[in-house]
Design a protein around this nucleic acid. Structure first.
Lengths: 203, 203
DNA sequence: GGAAAAATGGACTCCAGGGTCCAGACCATT
DNA sequence: AATGGTCTGGACCCTGGAGTCCATTTTTCC
């Protein structure tokens, strides 16, 4: 309720968000505010000055993520060979999903989904939905250009995204350790793109 | 701690588990024990007689699910045409993931993963991992039999599972509504199988 | 029918954690 | 140097919910 407009420290706001994302992401949503304060080297009161409640703090974290998330998810460019474009897109998705920040962000949002359905939906639209949309659009263009033969671009996009991500997303949510070397990421993206081309190539 | 061996009502144990799965699944892990008791038409004390604590109750729920889960996940039979077998396998996976019980179970386990990593791992192994293993084994056999050309069965199995499940699992976790008619399930399974055959068929 | 165990329900304890308050320190700006 | 704002840290209040207790009733088994 108390709208803050005074001489508030903007950099401190970010530090708090960072700390909160870190703590809530690893320890779960039930991690205490005191720990966030400690981690941010800030008094608890200050957190309540910047964000009015724990719920709003969580909102702010997810909101910020929602802003960042769509940026790297640009549709593949039509100038390169479609297989290369797909592989590139796949690599970006994989990194988004596998990077610690991405993993903990998703976990947080899932945990919050019960109490803040709108938040979860915003996250969903910014992440999973946007990525599929952009990819589907690319597939549509390539099909028009005669370089692919995709009859249902939305479904095909979901197929490709599913191949790339595979079991990794949910194993991440379940906290099962997995090695994700850059080489492994590259290999998966490449192979998925290759197989996708066979499945949807022009004859 | 208090091991129960007396004349305890076995059917009541199940009723409690059912109610708990329902309540914790929809309301989240933070749903109060009193509500579970009410839903199970049982006094709170009784729950503590059967299971010693909330944590153990959750364990019991997941354990039971772990038992059930592997059963329908038999590897496709080699007698039918591989495409049909794949479609059938895909259908089973989809239903496992989309059915309300499956969704709430996964959500529960994800929420519990922070505090009970072993539990989450058991769930992972019984579900996602087992399904991929069985499917991979099938692909290996079919390749040996010359009906498919799969070089990396584990990866291919993950690809197929990813195609079938797609965005649905995480949209379920995020509480985004989605229509999952039997026809839609069937269509996705069929189409995924068809495309997979093109991607991995013998020339 | 009677004894042992289990179930009931409702009151009770206890505590972690969200949120508040306050007194003093620390800036800015005027 | 004075005023209006923020920051600190630590004590503090308060609530929800886990878990316990208990007197009474019901069930089960001999």
């Amino acid at each position: 309720m108390p709208r803050i407009v005074g001489q508030i420290d903007q950099a401190k706001s970010q530090a708090i968000l960072d700390a909160a994302a870190e703590v809530l992401g690893t320890g779960g949503l039930s991690a205490p505010m005191d720990e966030i304060a400690r981690r941010a080297c800030v008094s608890k009161q200050t957190i309540y000055n910047h964000y009015g409640s724990k719920a709003e703090l969580i909102r702010a974290i997810v909101d910020r993520r929602v802003e960042q998330i769509a940026a790297p998810l640009m549709a593949p460019g039509a100038q390169e060979h479609p297989q290369e474009a797909l592989a590139g897109f796949g690599r970006v998705m994989l990194e988004l999903v596998l990077r610690p920040l991405g993993r903990s962000m998703l976990k947080m949002t899932v945990q919050a989904a019960d109490d803040m359905p709108d938040l979860a939906r915003a996250f969903y639209e910014a992440g999973p939905q946007t990525s599929r949309r952009r990819l589907a659009e690319f597939l549509r263009q390539e099909t028009l250009a005669g370089r692919l033969a995709v009859d249902d671009p939305d479904q095909a996009a979901d197929f490709f995204a599913g191949m790339v991500i595979g079991v990794r997303q949910i194993s991440g949510l379940l906290g099962v350790e997995q090695t994700a070397t850059p080489e492994a990421i590259e290999q998966v993206a490449q192979e998925a793109a290759r197989r996708f081309m066979r499945a949807y190539g022009v004859d």
